[in-house]
């Protein structure tokens, strides 16, 4: 079960990564990236690194996302 869940996480991570690459709408990409970060945090928790997981959740999913959204909102939303 553990293995299946982890495998699923990895697959999800990769598909999130690919989705970020494909999305032309920057805000959408940022949102997908936020969920990517959260998935990553969960993955690390499962790999036995709670310290890293908590930090990633706060930083990757939180601060980085906020920064990205701020930046997108101050520039332009679509990738030309």
């Amino acid at each position: 079960m553990h293995l299946v869940f982890s495998a699923l996480l990895v697959v999800l991570l990769v598909s999130c990564g690919l989705a970020v690459e494909r999305t032309r709408d920057l805000l959408g990409a940022v949102v997908i990236f936020a969920s990517y970060s959260l998935l990553m945090a969960i993955n690390w928790q499962m790999l036995g690194a709670p310290d890293v997981a908590i930090t990633e959740a706060a930083v990757g999913a939180g601060v980085t996302t906020l920064l990205l959204i701020g930046a997108v909102s101050r520039t332009r939303r679509r990738e030309e």
Partner: peptide
Amino acid sequence: PGGGFAGGT
């Protein structure tokens, strides 16, 4: 788990 950095964030 945590510490100055995580807490500060």
